[in-house]
């Protein structure tokens, strides 16, 4: 199963592109995805926080990821 991840804010700068495609076998859960990305892009681990959104909702670490999910990396927000 492959995954496509949208990147925003500083995570896009760190990775250097607006989306990331992970070929199969991709991480199966939110937690595994974060571990994988932090291992490949250590600067992600230095952020104040880095959440994963699945289908426009903040997702817990044990949530499973599917090929049809809209997945995004959410660095610390700063609206307002």
């Amino acid at each position: 199963m492959a995954l496509k991840i949208a990147l925003f804010g500083i995570t896009r700068d760190i990775v250097g592109q607006p989306t990331l495609e992970l070929p199969a076998p991709a991480p199966a859960t939110v937690g595994a995805l974060l571990d994988h990305l932090r291992a490949n892009y250590p600067a992600l681990g230095q952020l104040r926080s880095c959440a994963v959104a699945v289908n426009n909702e903040y997702a817990p670490a044990d949530q499973a990821l599917g090929p049809n999910d809209e997945i995004a990396l959410i660095p610390p927000v700063a609206g307002g």
């Binding site: 804010g9 500083i10 610390p76």
Partner: peptide, 27 residues
């Protein structure tokens, strides 16, 4: 407004005389 600032997915990049920075990104 307080809760918006905590959860709404909007990011702010400040531009200074000598560079730019993503606000709140780092501890």
């Amino acid at each position: 407004i307080d809760t918006l600032k905590q959860v709404v997915t909007i990011w702010k990049r400040e531009e200074y005389e000598d560079g730019t920075e993503w606000v709140a990104a780092h501890p």
